[in-house]
Amino acid sequence: MTTPASFLTEEMRQQAIGRKSEPHTMEVEKGAIIKFAQAIEDDNPVYNDEKAARESRYGGLIAPPTFLRTVGVDRPTYPFDMPFTRLLDGGSEWEYFHPVRAGDRITAVSEIADINERTGRMGLMIITSIVVTYRNQFDQVAATQTSTSIRY
């Protein structure tokens, strides 16, 4: 596949930055926490064992770090056609403010924080930084996740 030498203009960048997704709400189910903990093979009782979790300082099951990505919020749409079909996840930075408990209702919104292009070994790449804010039913920000996606 041949790629152009440049794609993203400053005007396109400014149109994209600040675009948000629709909010998406998910109830944190006990079974989903346990399945997730099993999938990552983390045997911490506060994720796996309801009785032990009740006796912990959390008073019940909590979700492991990174579980919130199961909320599955959409990415914001781009205000232009993206001529790159391949997608790689560049990394993630999570900040945690409140534990995520079984029974919580989490509402997530994603927003384009930055977008740039770069030429790498795979040719021209579009690098997007997306911040997802996860709020619980008390309107507290439980966590934020800043992730970098690479399109090429």
Binding site: A39, P64, P65, L88, D89, G90, W94, Y96
Partner: peptide, 30 residues
């Protein structure tokens, strides 16, 4: 999955910090 590797690193840190530690920030690059 990059996110699975992120979860492995979360496991490393939360296991070490123990039941009374709190994870405030977790970052990684793939």
């Amino acid at each position: 999955h990059g996110a699975l590797k992120n979860a492995f690193l979360g496991h490393l840190v939360t296991k070490w910090m123990g039941p009374h530690g709190d994870l405030k920030r977790l970052a990684c690059q793939y």
